[in-house]
Protein backbone atom coordinates (compact mmCIF):
# COMPACT_ATOMS: atom_id res chain seq x y z
CA UNK A 1 0.00 0.00 0.00
CA UNK A 2 2.72 2.41 1.04
CA UNK A 3 4.74 1.49 -2.02
CA UNK A 4 1.86 2.20 -4.35
CA UNK A 5 1.11 5.44 -2.57
CA UNK A 6 4.75 6.42 -2.72
CA UNK A 7 5.10 5.65 -6.41
CA UNK A 8 1.94 7.48 -7.33
CA UNK A 9 2.65 10.49 -5.14
CA UNK A 10 3.86 13.66 -6.81
CA UNK A 11 7.41 13.15 -5.60
CA UNK A 12 7.34 9.39 -6.32
CA UNK A 13 6.37 9.99 -9.92
CA UNK A 14 9.09 12.54 -10.29
CA UNK A 15 11.59 10.09 -8.85
CA UNK A 16 10.58 7.46 -11.38
CA UNK A 17 10.75 10.03 -14.12
CA UNK A 18 14.23 11.01 -13.04
CA UNK A 19 15.40 7.43 -12.57
CA UNK A 20 14.12 6.15 -15.91
CA UNK A 21 15.58 9.19 -17.57
CA UNK A 22 18.95 8.71 -15.94
CA UNK A 23 18.98 5.00 -16.90
CA UNK A 24 18.45 5.93 -20.53
CA UNK A 25 21.04 8.65 -20.27
CA UNK A 26 23.72 6.49 -18.66
CA UNK A 27 23.12 3.10 -20.27
CA UNK A 28 21.97 4.13 -23.66
CA UNK A 29 22.65 7.69 -24.62
CA UNK A 30 26.28 7.85 -23.49
CA UNK A 31 27.36 4.49 -25.08
CA UNK A 32 25.37 5.34 -28.19
CA UNK A 33 27.19 8.61 -28.48
CA UNK A 34 30.51 6.87 -27.95
CA UNK A 35 29.72 4.48 -30.79
CA UNK A 36 28.55 7.23 -33.05
CA UNK A 37 31.73 9.19 -32.62
CA UNK A 38 33.57 6.25 -34.21
CA UNK A 39 31.77 7.10 -37.44
CA UNK A 40 34.08 10.06 -37.75
CA UNK A 41 37.07 7.69 -37.87
CA UNK A 42 36.05 5.94 -41.05
CA UNK A 43 34.15 2.82 -42.17
CA UNK A 44 36.48 0.16 -40.77
CA UNK A 45 36.34 1.20 -37.17
CA UNK A 46 32.67 2.02 -37.31
CA UNK A 47 31.64 -1.23 -38.99
CA UNK A 48 33.75 -3.27 -36.67
CA UNK A 49 32.18 -1.49 -33.67
CA UNK A 50 28.75 -2.38 -35.02
CA UNK A 51 29.88 -5.93 -35.63
CA UNK A 52 31.20 -6.35 -32.12
CA UNK A 53 28.06 -4.87 -30.73
CA UNK A 54 26.09 -7.53 -32.59
CA UNK A 55 28.14 -10.25 -31.04
CA UNK A 56 27.08 -9.07 -27.61
CA UNK A 57 23.49 -9.98 -28.40
CA UNK A 58 22.39 -11.06 -24.90
CA UNK A 59 23.65 -7.81 -23.37
CA UNK A 60 22.21 -5.79 -26.19
CA UNK A 61 18.84 -7.45 -25.79
CA UNK A 62 19.03 -6.93 -22.08
CA UNK A 63 19.69 -3.28 -22.58
CA UNK A 64 16.98 -3.06 -25.17
CA UNK A 65 14.46 -4.51 -22.75
CA UNK A 66 15.64 -2.12 -20.06
CA UNK A 67 15.32 0.75 -22.50
CA UNK A 68 11.83 -0.30 -23.44
CA UNK A 69 10.88 -0.45 -19.78
CA UNK A 70 12.54 2.86 -19.03
CA UNK A 71 10.95 4.62 -21.91
CA UNK A 72 7.54 3.26 -20.95
CA UNK A 73 7.92 4.34 -17.33
CA UNK A 74 9.33 7.67 -18.41
CA UNK A 75 6.44 8.33 -20.72
CA UNK A 76 3.72 7.14 -18.38
CA UNK A 77 5.08 9.26 -15.55
CA UNK A 78 5.59 12.21 -17.83
CA UNK A 79 2.02 11.99 -19.03
CA UNK A 80 0.73 11.73 -15.48
CA UNK A 81 2.82 14.65 -14.26
CA UNK A 82 2.05 16.89 -17.20
CA UNK A 83 -1.62 16.07 -17.02
CA UNK A 84 -1.77 16.68 -13.24
CA UNK A 85 0.13 19.93 -13.62
CA UNK A 86 -2.22 21.16 -16.29
CA UNK A 87 -5.12 20.32 -14.03
CA UNK A 88 -3.49 22.03 -11.06
CA UNK A 89 -3.16 25.22 -12.99
CA UNK A 90 -6.03 25.24 -15.41
CA UNK A 91 -6.98 28.81 -14.62
CA UNK A 92 -4.01 30.62 -16.02
CA UNK A 93 -3.01 34.10 -15.06
CA UNK A 94 -3.74 36.42 -17.97
CA UNK A 95 -0.36 37.95 -17.61
CA UNK A 96 2.46 36.15 -15.89
CA UNK A 97 6.13 36.91 -15.92
CA UNK A 98 8.57 34.10 -15.45
CA UNK A 99 11.74 35.15 -13.76
CA UNK A 100 13.58 31.94 -13.18
CA UNK A 101 11.96 29.43 -15.50
CA UNK A 102 14.21 28.45 -18.42
CA UNK A 103 13.06 27.88 -21.98
CA UNK A 104 14.29 24.31 -21.68
CA UNK A 105 12.09 23.73 -18.64
CA UNK A 106 9.09 25.21 -20.38
CA UNK A 107 9.64 22.97 -23.42
CA UNK A 108 10.13 19.70 -21.51
CA UNK A 109 6.89 17.97 -22.55
CA UNK A 110 7.31 19.09 -26.15
CA UNK A 111 10.98 18.18 -26.43
CA UNK A 112 10.14 14.86 -24.79
CA UNK A 113 7.40 14.18 -27.30
CA UNK A 114 9.69 15.09 -30.17
CA UNK A 115 12.35 12.76 -28.89
CA UNK A 116 9.83 9.94 -28.82
CA UNK A 117 8.86 10.57 -32.45
CA UNK A 118 12.52 10.76 -33.30
CA UNK A 119 13.24 7.42 -31.66
CA UNK A 120 10.54 5.71 -33.70
CA UNK A 121 11.85 7.22 -36.90
CA UNK A 122 15.42 6.45 -35.94
CA UNK A 123 14.59 2.79 -35.33
CA UNK A 124 12.88 2.53 -38.69
CA UNK A 125 15.82 4.24 -40.35
CA UNK A 126 18.57 2.07 -38.95
CA UNK A 127 17.48 -0.84 -36.82
CA UNK A 128 14.78 -2.19 -39.09
CA UNK A 129 16.42 -1.20 -42.34
CA UNK A 130 17.83 -3.62 -44.85
CA UNK A 131 21.60 -3.71 -44.60
CA UNK A 132 24.24 -4.97 -47.05
CA UNK A 133 26.72 -7.56 -45.91
CA UNK A 134 30.45 -7.19 -46.47
CA UNK A 135 33.50 -9.20 -45.54
CA UNK A 136 36.12 -7.51 -43.45
CA UNK A 137 39.85 -7.85 -43.93
CA UNK A 138 39.82 -10.43 -41.13
CA UNK A 139 37.27 -12.41 -43.09
CA UNK A 140 34.37 -11.68 -40.76
CA UNK A 141 30.94 -11.29 -42.27
CA UNK A 142 29.53 -8.03 -41.17
CA UNK A 143 27.00 -5.39 -42.16
CA UNK A 144 28.23 -2.29 -43.88
CA UNK A 145 26.59 0.03 -41.40
CA UNK A 146 28.86 2.84 -42.40
CA UNK A 147 27.61 2.76 -45.95
CA UNK A 148 24.07 2.58 -44.74
CA UNK A 149 24.46 5.73 -42.67
CA UNK A 150 26.04 7.46 -45.63
CA UNK A 151 23.26 6.39 -47.95
CA UNK A 152 20.56 7.58 -45.59
CA UNK A 153 21.80 11.13 -45.62
CA UNK A 154 23.62 11.77 -48.85
CA UNK A 155 21.53 13.80 -51.24
CA UNK A 156 18.70 14.02 -48.76
CA UNK A 157 18.89 17.46 -47.09
CA UNK A 158 15.37 17.07 -45.74
CA UNK A 159 16.40 13.98 -43.84
CA UNK A 160 19.44 15.76 -42.52
CA UNK A 161 17.33 18.67 -41.41
CA UNK A 162 15.01 16.26 -39.64
CA UNK A 163 17.87 14.72 -37.68
CA UNK A 164 19.58 17.95 -36.77
CA UNK A 165 16.26 19.50 -35.86
CA UNK A 166 15.43 16.72 -33.50
CA UNK A 167 18.83 17.00 -31.85
CA UNK A 168 17.70 20.48 -30.75
CA UNK A 169 14.97 18.72 -28.81
CA UNK A 170 17.58 16.47 -27.23
CA UNK A 171 19.66 19.49 -26.27
CA UNK A 172 16.78 21.28 -24.64
CA UNK A 173 15.55 18.16 -22.92
CA UNK A 174 18.88 17.19 -21.42
CA UNK A 175 19.89 20.67 -20.32
CA UNK A 176 16.93 20.84 -17.96
CA UNK A 177 16.63 17.13 -17.24
CA UNK A 178 20.10 16.54 -15.82
CA UNK A 179 20.04 19.18 -13.09
CA UNK A 180 16.35 18.64 -12.48
CA UNK A 181 16.86 14.95 -11.76
CA UNK A 182 19.55 15.80 -9.23
CA UNK A 183 17.17 18.17 -7.42
CA UNK A 184 14.50 15.50 -7.45
CA UNK A 185 16.95 13.13 -5.79
CA UNK A 186 17.41 15.75 -3.13
CA UNK A 187 20.80 17.05 -4.20
CA UNK A 188 20.64 20.74 -3.65
CA UNK A 189 21.00 23.01 -6.65
CA UNK A 190 21.68 26.51 -5.32
CA UNK A 191 19.71 29.15 -7.13
CA UNK A 192 22.48 31.65 -7.35
CA UNK A 193 25.35 29.26 -7.78
CA UNK A 194 24.64 27.78 -11.16
CA UNK A 195 27.63 25.41 -11.58
CA UNK A 196 25.42 22.35 -11.68
CA UNK A 197 22.93 24.10 -13.88
CA UNK A 198 25.73 25.20 -16.19
CA UNK A 199 27.16 21.68 -16.29
CA UNK A 200 23.72 20.39 -17.15
CA UNK A 201 23.41 22.81 -20.03
CA UNK A 202 26.94 22.13 -21.30
CA UNK A 203 26.57 18.34 -21.18
CA UNK A 204 23.10 18.45 -22.67
CA UNK A 205 24.00 20.64 -25.61
CA UNK A 206 27.41 19.01 -25.98
CA UNK A 207 25.80 15.64 -26.43
CA UNK A 208 23.14 16.97 -28.76
CA UNK A 209 25.77 18.59 -30.97
CA UNK A 210 27.93 15.47 -31.00
CA UNK A 211 24.94 13.46 -32.16
CA UNK A 212 24.17 16.10 -34.77
CA UNK A 213 27.67 15.96 -36.24
CA UNK A 214 27.19 12.41 -37.55
CA UNK A 215 24.38 13.11 -40.02
CA UNK A 216 26.09 16.36 -41.01
CA UNK A 217 29.33 14.49 -41.77
CA UNK A 218 27.39 11.77 -43.53
CA UNK A 219 25.64 14.38 -45.65
CA UNK A 220 28.86 16.09 -46.52
CA UNK A 221 30.45 12.67 -47.20
Amino acid sequence: MTLKRTILSSIGQKLLLATSGLIMFLLFLIPHMGGNVLFLFGPDLFNSYAHHLHQLVPIVIGIEVLMLASISVHMIMAFRVVFANAKAHDKRHTQKDSKERSLAAKLMPYSGGMIFIFILKHLLDFKFYEKTEIISEHGDHMYNVYAMVLSRFQGDPLHLLFYVGFMLAVGFHLSHALQSSLQTYGLYIPRNDSKIKLASVVIGWGMASTFAIIPIMAFVG
Binding site: A84, N85, K87, H89, E100, R101, H176
Partner: peptide
Protein backbone atom coordinates in the same frame (compact mmCIF):
# COMPACT_ATOMS: atom_id res chain seq x y z
CA UNK B 1 -1.62 21.06 -6.06
CA UNK B 2 0.70 20.30 -8.99
CA UNK B 3 4.05 18.53 -9.23
CA UNK B 4 7.40 20.19 -8.93
CA UNK B 5 9.21 20.47 -12.23
CA UNK B 6 12.24 22.12 -10.65
CA UNK B 7 11.82 25.47 -12.32
CA UNK B 8 12.41 27.49 -9.15
CA UNK B 9 9.86 30.21 -9.88
CA UNK B 10 8.57 29.70 -6.34
CA UNK B 11 11.81 30.73 -4.70
CA UNK B 12 11.96 33.96 -6.68
Amino acid sequence: FGNCSNEYECAV
